[in-house]
Design a protein around this nucleic acid. Structure first.
Lengths: 200, 200, 200, 200
DNA sequence: AATGAATGAGAGTTCATTCAT
DNA sequence: AATGAATGAACTCTCATTCAT
């Protein structure tokens, strides 16, 4: 039977989300390699059997984690601010994300690796990645048209470079703070958006 | 007991290397998540117990794989050719590596992720990464001094950007051929090394 | 609390019977091995917890199934028709039962096997079996006295043989249609009741 | 690698057989419903993991039990003695089997029931059953030709009846000693093989 | 009378590791 | 050097049962 009230449905979804968050944390901390359903259930204070009440299989739980990660990541990608600022704002948003949500960074890295062996994840990640690339490309083209960009830049290739550079930051090794700073600085310099925070 | 002759020692090392290569392949194909010592032994035609004769633990075998990966990767990083060409040659070498040795790419990705949970790997990878960064920075500084670089480029930041961009290619998801091509093209354009293959 | 009105009591019994029938079907389809209380409840459109309201334990539900099976089976055994015909009629009734109610056949087989481990079922089944044997023996003795039987037959032993032969048909393997036909034919021939359908 | 000596191969087969026998006993005692691999391993004094070294799955172990049961049962069916005696000898052999090997009886019953849900078992059991029927039919036809049988008996139908009657004895419920005796007596009487133990 | 949520106990299976030979 | 056999610990998943509502 379906839940009788919207409240009950929400309660169920809440529990599911709790479990997804716990799994999310576990993956961030120990990777897919170390993801244990019992640990996830325990983190929420539930019995392992109860976890299976909400998610029939471990795989289903992982799908939930994928959705959660995508949700968070995509929200970062959406352009914000006035068109002229969007490019710089975008870079800052990603930089901010890396600082604020290191778990998301770790999970995104895990997903990227897993996509080699999981077609479902591969599809989803490819979609997100393409969306990201196209968003950036759009911003760059508009900026170029408005004359805010150095005329010798190939907008599409620059978009690819930016996506590549930022993607590498999902990997823990490279994420040394100063190296990240350097990379961002160089990207901003390349785009000519470094200093200004808005129109004078 | 230690091997009595140099020949025997060499034979032992050969077997060990065989096992390391098999493990390397397994990790490339199935990730750490799917690495099974039994599979590794079977790939070499050995019993699982014999594997433990050569490597006391799974972890020891993994250390062997790490060494192998580093060896291969570092050899790519070494500067080749005349100083003027080294920058372009380096980019080409990495590009070539991605094409020629996709397994190394996959293993490097796995190692990068694992470094979050394995301090030993983290240390090794950080070392390699720093070496890479410093190599590139050196090349860039020399090129700048020789006037082969656009004067407005900050050599150190560019080095960081290049390392970041190339590192992202260890992740399977992003590795769409045309996106990779775009990224390389943009890097070469940025460095002004795109067309020329040598001094006029 | 006990149900306050006869109507309520009847309603409760109806629900219980529904559940018993569902369990009966499940056992027929998947055996005791595959009997799942959740499936039973679902088949009636009830929650698993509600099933436990009507039957405190799985075992109690099974008792209900045993009763149901016995009720159906015993009703087949009751003599019908004129005394002269009863013997032939009895065989025909069993044959008919095997055709009409294959689920009962399957459940009887399951119960027979389970009786080895379940004294309660063993007792009930022994009772039914004895009743069957005695019914048949009575019919045979009366037929013998009336001269309707070949004088060289030992009525009691024949009764045992008939019960044995018919019992085997509860097992699915042996139940090849033509082998069943042969067996019935031979039994009727042995009793000399094959052709006639009644007195001339 | 394959075992190096015939002795080692035999040792492995011995262990496997030990496990099959333990499983056989468990099924006889608790039915398929109560078959637990851990119990089987314990009965042989092995760890559960070791059981899986010899049999990859529970199902594989069960196949072993099926083979064992068939081997035992078929050896009973083979005709023994001089042609004239074979019919009586066969009945006695089955009777003997029921007394000597009550576990086999129980396992055969379990297999018969399981065949409804397991096509592999169904096929095997059907084969054994047909072989049994044909063996008996052959004996009866030869006995009829030799004039050792009452001329009014239909050999084929009698064969079907005998198989049915004896099959029922695999079910525990019906197996009351005196009822079994009666059935055998009646079968022998019907065949005219009751008294004599051989040619005068 | 009915249910969603929760659980303890246990199932089959997997895997790195050990040890006698 | 090499192996067959063995194991402890752990894994995911299942199921009858309970309880507050």
């Amino acid at each position: 039977m379906s839940p009788r009230t919207r409240l009950e449905a929400a309660a169920k979804e809440d529990r599911q989300h709790e479990l997804v968050l716990a799994a999310f944390n576990q993956i961030a901390a120990r990777g897919f390699e170390g993801l244990r359903t019992r640990e996830v259930a325990a983190e929420v204070g539930l019995n392992i059997a109860t976890l299976h009440y909400y998610f029939p299989t471990k795989e289903a739980l992982i799908r939930g984690v994928v959705d959660e990660a995508m949700r968070r990541f995509r929200s970062t990608l959406e352009p914000h601010g006035s068109p002229a600022d969007q490019l710089r704002t975008h870079l800052r948003a990603v930089r901010q994300l890396l600082r604020t949500d290191p778990k998301l960074r770790a999970v995104m890295g895990e997903l990227a690796l897993r996509s080699a062996r999981d077609q479902a994840i591969a599809g989803i990640l490819r979609g997100t990645n393409d969306a990201w690339y196209k968003t950036l490309r759009g911003l760059l083209r508009r900026a170029a048209k408005a004359g805010h960009l150095r005329p010798d830049l190939d907008t599409d290739d620059v978009a690819a470079l930016i996506v590549a550079a930022l993607t590498s930051m999902m990997l823990p090794t490279v994420s040394k703070a100063d190296r990240i700073d350097q990379t961002f600085r160089q990207l901003e310099r390349m785009l000519g958006v470094s200093g200004r925070t808005g129109p004078p």
